[in-house]
């Protein structure tokens, strides 16, 4: 049995789901960041698999863009987290609860 693009796609969907559940249930902001990254990288895996299957380069091109954007996103997220940490030293998402109603 050889690996087809379907196998990669299923693996990617599983990783995406694990990441998505992690964002919803984990409370530590760092872990939530990592879960978002995991979702993006899961998509990268399926993009690469599809690009290989279709024998085209543009899917792999998008992967490079996604990695650059994910890096930029994390920089912004960490900057906001540092600013929050200065006001109140916590990384627990449940303590970010001033806005409600």
């Amino acid at each position: 049995m050889s690996l087809s693009s379907l196998h990669y796609f299923i693996l990617s969907a599983i990783l995406f789901t694990i990441g998505g559940i992690g964002v919803l249930v984990r409370r530590n902001v760092f872990v939530i960041f990592m879960c978002v990254e995991m979702m993006l990288n899961a998509v990268n895996l399926s993009l690469i698999a599809f690009a290989r299957y279709l024998n085209k380069a543009d899917g792999q091109l998008l992967v490079l863009f996604v990695m650059a954007i994910a890096a930029a996103e994390v920089v912004v997220g960490l900057a906001i987290l540092v600013a929050l940490h200065r006001k109140r030293p916590t990384t627990d998402a449940d303590e970010m609860n001033v806005l409600r109603g």
């Binding site: 978002v36 997220g77 906001i80 998402a93 970010m96």
Partner: peptide, 8 residues
Amino acid sequence: EAGMKYFI
């Protein structure tokens, strides 16, 4: 806090 929620 709003920025963090929006970001996630």
